[in-house]
Computed example of a mutant assay.
Amino acid sequence: MASTPSAEDLASLPPEYLAVDTHLKLLHTSIAFIVLTTVIYILFNVSRIFCAQRNGWETWVLYPISYLFQLLLGILCILFVRYGGTGRHVEYWLLNNPNTVGNFLKIQTATEFIYVAGVTFPKVCILLMYLNIFVERKVRIATKIAIAVIVTNWIATGIIADFTICQPFAFKWDKSIPGGHCSNLMAAYRWISIPNILTDLAIIFLPFSTLYHLQTTRIRKIGILVTFLTGGLGIMTAILRFVGFFTVDLESDPTYLGVNTQIYTLVEPNAYFICSCLPGMRPLLRRVFGDSVLSNTINRYYHSITSDSKTTQQDLNGICLDVPRGSYKASVSAPRDTLSENIHDDDAALIRTNKSYHVAYSSA
């Protein structure tokens, strides 16, 4: 925090300035995302447990851990309001309860650890989904590199940097410790979003090469691309957080300016988590909507079989070939390294065969 104002400066502040309180914005956002994320996660589990034939280890390990971090972030934001004085100007607390500022800085320290982990785990889940789908060697290597970069960034910035940026560690919230010092905290808050944005771009562009070579209609390619792009929607919140931290000097009035910055810090990882759950909810959507028009639309866009098509073939992994009626030849092929047991039945949107087939369809 910036230098503490003198008693005379505090006494001269107008009552209207000290009465400002915006804590409800953060409180309502926290509750809304706790409810939304919980509902999405429940639907995801229903889809995976009751509607999907197979699930990878990430369903039982990474997704629960990821949800836990989102829940903790929501709870910390509520604690910001209840014990950290978020919403009021820092001068109000310096006049009425100086300990509140220390509570704010303690909760902020905990949030720094949870935020980076909350961003990391959903991204890893999305990229593991890619590995379950992609067969192209270069794309798989690039996906593994992206996972390594994300995990390394978490260890470097979310653990090592958070523990070492202030010496001693307690100086983060207790500025009275003799000889204590911190590096540029605002720079750390601002630039930590850059690795997130870069890895978001990787998540968005990794499927392009595979989709370009996929033998299917343009509309279906767009539908599959939309499925993959849901994993990259977090880039919008990452950019908002990056801009948000650059437009304020948080240290000048942390309890008041912290409302918006904490909202950014809450929304970004929750957006990643929700995006990571959406593709896994397709089996539930198919089960619920059955043969309805909405179901057929979902099936068409997510490359699933439609019940009224006589020219559709599907295997246990949800792979289908759908062609219009007529008389012509179609050739489809894909690289080797196919049909691994780890492939999810509802994630397989690509043709996985090492042979080439010539199929002729004739009118009824």
Results as ranks from 00 to 15, higher is better:
residue 49 I to A: 09
residue 49 I to Y: 04
residue 50 F to S: 06
residue 50 F to T: 07
residue 51 C to E: 11
residue 51 C to V: 11
residue 52 A to F: 06
residue 52 A to R: 04
residue 52 A to T: 11
residue 53 Q to W: 02
residue 54 R to Q: 11
residue 55 N to Y: 03
residue 55 N to H: 01
residue 55 N to W: 06
residue 55 N to K: 09
residue 56 G to P: 05
residue 56 G to D: 12
residue 56 G to C: 01
residue 56 G to S: 14
residue 57 W to F: 14
residue 57 W to Y: 13
residue 57 W to V: 15
residue 57 W to S: 10
residue 57 W to C: 07
residue 60 W to K: 09
residue 61 V to Y: 09
residue 61 V to C: 10
residue 62 L to M: 08
residue 62 L to E: 01
residue 64 P to L: 05
residue 64 P to K: 00
residue 65 I to T: 13
residue 65 I to L: 15
residue 65 I to K: 00
residue 66 S to N: 03
residue 66 S to L: 03
residue 67 Y to E: 06
residue 67 Y to W: 15
residue 68 L to E: 08
residue 68 L to H: 07
residue 70 Q to G: 13
residue 70 Q to M: 11
residue 70 Q to H: 05
residue 70 Q to L: 03
residue 71 L to F: 12
residue 71 L to R: 01
residue 71 L to W: 07
residue 72 L to G: 05
residue 72 L to M: 15
residue 72 L to Q: 13
residue 73 L to R: 00
residue 73 L to I: 07
residue 73 L to P: 01
residue 75 I to H: 08
residue 75 I to K: 05
residue 75 I to D: 08
residue 76 L to F: 11
residue 77 C to Y: 03
residue 77 C to S: 15
residue 78 I to F: 04
residue 78 I to N: 06
residue 78 I to G: 04
residue 78 I to R: 05
residue 79 L to N: 08
residue 80 F to N: 12
residue 81 V to G: 03
residue 82 R to M: 09
residue 82 R to C: 06
residue 83 Y to W: 11
residue 84 G to V: 01
residue 85 G to L: 03
residue 85 G to M: 06
residue 86 T to G: 00
residue 86 T to E: 00
residue 87 G to R: 02
residue 87 G to I: 09
residue 88 R to E: 10
residue 88 R to L: 07
residue 88 R to W: 02
residue 88 R to C: 08
residue 88 R to P: 11
residue 88 R to F: 06
residue 89 H to K: 11
residue 89 H to I: 14
residue 89 H to G: 10
residue 89 H to N: 11
residue 93 W to P: 00
residue 95 L to M: 14
residue 96 N to Q: 13
residue 96 N to V: 09
residue 96 N to L: 03
residue 96 N to C: 02
residue 96 N to K: 12
residue 96 N to W: 06
residue 97 N to P: 01
residue 97 N to G: 06
residue 98 P to W: 01
residue 99 N to R: 12
residue 99 N to G: 13
